[in-house]
Design a protein around this nucleic acid. Structure first.
Lengths: 322, 322
DNA sequence: GTGAAAGCGCTAACAC
DNA sequence: GTGTTAGCGCTTTCAC
């Protein structure tokens, strides 16, 4: 790896001039030429580590998500990446597994790597975002909010819970259960509150056993659906508060030979890679990618020096079918 | 962000001693104590950028994949991450979109960031892996091989193509078409060669129009399936050479009211998040995660100094149902 | 076992 | 415009 000194020597200029050329300052045309030639001959690429040490910052953004294998979060990541790339920033994707320890670990890394900023879906744990914020590194929370005064982009979770549940009642179902994520995660709480509101108002009867907490993955949805089917008086429809749990629920139904038209299903989120026809299941589309681009835009603003008080942007879901 | 000098001053030792403590050299117990206390009080985290500049290497591995939104690659990434984490390495995930330009860009970044090594699914373009290899950074190709002499982990693609096609003939289908990925991508070529071999031997008739190239995504599978259905004499079954194209094909069939039992479907790969019962579609399971752990293990060996000639590990798929 | 000091490659004052 | 130089925070000889 050639250095700026070797390029300078070969081009007959000082290292500073080489640096200037690569950083946009004006350099006389003839010197610029010979520097470019020398750089090409030596296959020179500026050493980003040295630059970062000197500048105390980099063009790297960290994105911390709970699960890279969940299409909701990869779509979100895609959005962040698109926006970041436009601005010349690269993305470092980190998987927290919803483990506060891992979240903290990656936050430390982001700080000690002089990354320009962090976008994260905070875990339920009480991780100190103050530390990194105090370093002057902007932080944006996405999909979930935090007690810390940082920017946030989220979904109107109560509304999507209401929309999904409402779609089921509109279709004629009356005993609507809910498969919710782990207790303690904000997005889930708000979504099932939406369900409870509608289910209580329109369902009439009591909701005993109709709320099932589960982990946010396919297997969580499976076991919750199984428990619902074993109820003395099972529901005639079910709402899930995320995409993957719906997959699990639908798998259990398919294996039991029950079609989603017999036992209604509505999802908060999008059924990933579904091969069902669009009208089989009510889906409340969540703008995952847009969540990402919005968060990235906010972060880039902050990196650019924007210092207004923390904002929270709320995005809306959209009922798609059913 | 506190520095090693501040910690040293507070603990009444030299910076070198602080460094030694954090790097495993022996330091007398009393000094170690006061250093630890000082570090804790100052909330000290070693600056990784400075360390890297000095050491000319880092505990970072780059993983370049074509599509973060494809569950095959996220599973692979998960495997790499698991193995890397065990060894104290962190992962930087980069999306190439199968664009040689982006691949090259990220390779440059990996080099100029002093990353410890690179694992990549090479694009079809002729990107120079020699440059980074010459820098002494190990490179492992995964899922696809390259003309460069680097380690590789791949699938026995011909065998999985044969297995998927064979399953369809075993189930009684006779006019078996193939939806293959873009021409020029090795994995696809080999898989469809497997299909052709079996289809020719067991299908008898000619294969005119039965080979459809498409992009590797859901929409590619959709349009290819549509073309197949419009054939004067359509196939009675279809093999797809990756997971996402199968989703597209199944969507088109579902919309046309054709069940996968009428028109047989076999997939090379795993149907992601499927809600179909396991017997509906023949799937040749691809050990994506294992591909990742294997590649990571090889890379870590190389980082550790292993210098045997490049190896290629071939993993096998496994017929799962149908 | 510990300290002093050089240097990794770059950028940004500061002179000219 | 361009060169000289200091220094970002760390690790690592080299003495002691």
């Amino acid at each position: 790896m050639a250095t700026i000194y070797e390029v300078a020597a070969r081009a007959g200029v000082s290292p500073a001039t080489v640096s200037r050329l690569f950083n946009g300052s004006f350099v006389s045309a003839d010197k610029a030429d010979s520097i470019r030639r020398a750089a090409a001959e030596l296959n020179f690429t500026p050493n980003r580590t040295a630059r970062r040490l000197r500048k105390q910052s980099s063009e790297l953004i960290a994105l911390l998500i709970p699960d890279v294998e969940n299409p909701f979060f990869t779509a979100l990541a895609r959005g962040v990446e698109d926006r970041a790339q436009q601005a010349g920033f690269s993305l470092v994707l980190c998987n927290t597994d919803d483990d506060p320890g891992k979240e903290e670990h990656y936050l430390d890394i982001a700080a000690s790597e002089q990354m320009a900023g962090v976008i994260l879906t905070p875990t339920a744990g009480e991780v100190d975002l103050g530390a990194i914020a105090a370093l002057g590194r902007p932080v944006v929370a996405v999909d979930r909010t935090t007690p810390y005064p940082v920017d946030a982009v989220k979904i109107d979770n109560r509304a999507v819970g209401i929309a999904a549940t409402g779609a089921l009642f509109d279709a004629g179902f009356r005993r609507v259960a809910c498969i919710a994520g782990p207790a303690g995660i904000e997005a889930t709480e708000e979504r099932y509150l939406g369900w409870r509101e509608v289910a209580t108002a329109r369902g009439g009867g009591d909701l005993d056993g109709f709320l099932q907490h589960a982990n946010y993955r396919v297997d969580g949805g499976r076991s919750a659906m199984q428990r619902l089917l074993e109820l003395p008086v099972p529901p005639d429809a079910v709402v899930t508060t995320n995409n993957l749990m719906a997959v699990g629920a639908l798998q259990v139904l398919a294996e039991a030979g029950i079609s989603p038209r017999e036992l209604g299903v509505a999802v908060v989120g999008d059924l990933p890679f579904t091969t069902l026809t669009p009208d089989a299941v009510a889906q409340v589309h969540l703008p995952a990618r847009h969540l990402g681009t919005t968060a990235a835009a906010m972060l880039l603003d902050r990196i650019g020096g924007d210092s207004q008080p923390p904002r929270t942007v709320v995005l809306r879901g959209e009922l798609r079918a059913g």
